[in-house]
Amino acid sequence: MPLRLDVRRRATGGGFVTELSLDVPSDLEYVGPAVELIAEELPGGPLSARRIRFNLRTALAEALANAIAYGNRHDPARLVQVRVEVTHEAVHLHVTDEGDGFNPADVPDPTRPELLEREDGRGLFVLRGLVDQVAFNEKGNSVCLTLRAG
């Protein structure tokens, strides 16, 4: 399935908001191409090239991989919705899966000595280190990642 990015620009009271939307199939092979598509189409403005190159790309890859693997459980009938809002002050990445959600408080700190050599379990921790804010909805199947201007 080819990825199709929808880009819209609308005026608000204080300026313009650009919205990018993308539906991603529940296959981990799509993570890299989806990240590149969004990063390359992202309008210049609030984020430095370096933050787009590293923080935004890594955070989006993390959130997509979590949504595909743990949220949609690789179910080909399910999609992950990505919506990106770009304002003058920040970039907000919304990633939503069709799963049952989870409680982020249940995820242990992967830097604990006994967990350091585990292969998995670092995704949420890495996300929190890369962006300025991580906010889940109540169900736990949608995350909003905020990168403030800079």
Binding site: R118, D120, R122, G123, V126
Partner: peptide, 11 residues
């Protein structure tokens, strides 16, 4: 960039 899965593989 390297994501957490990439880090996990290195571990």
């Amino acid at each position: 960039y390297i994501d957490s899965s990439g880090l996990g593989v290195l571990v």
